[in-house]
Amino acid sequence: MTPPDPSRPDPLELDIRLILQRGEEPFGAIMAAVDALAKGQALRLLAPFRPAPLFGVMANHGFGCEDRQRADGVWEVLFTPAPGFGPEAGMAPGSTPGAGLWPDPARELDLTGLMPPEPMVRILEEITALAPGEVLFALLDREPMFLFPELAQRGHEWAGNFAPSGDVYRLLIRAGVGDD
């Protein structure tokens, strides 16, 4: 076990068992907790099952994870911020680092001139049809703020920014394994 680092604050604890018991989706609460973390603070998550799909999402946010099942059956996962992680220069906040190394897009979509939420519908339909690891490239009129949480929840990675002219948004999405 690693000795406690006195310069790091105590981990923030989030118990999602009650949220799940109420039949609600815990993803929003988890992301709110991630937003609320102080610099360098870890997140300790308590769940009734091993939240494996979350590991990839949290890795994209720059967190490493350690998980264990306690004697009472509860899964305890500690997400610790990786040192030196930050958004790459010129990419929108939330973009996956290293998108430049992804394979060439298997699918390209021009979604400019479409009324919201049509671009979101097209992207999610197309990305669902791609094999894990394949990449989709889309051009949009604006940053698709409502699409990003949906991509993260389905285990897809994304990276995007505005073109230098500022009138078109470029989005790369790499299909994850979690979506069916």
Partner: peptide, 21 residues
């Protein structure tokens, strides 16, 4: 309309038909 649609139907896109907003 838009927020309700995102809340209810965004998770279903690509998995089942969704109505337009």
């Amino acid at each position: 309309s838009f927020l309700t649609w995102v809340q209810i139907f965004a998770p279903r896109i690509g998995r089942q038909p969704v109505p337009v907003v």
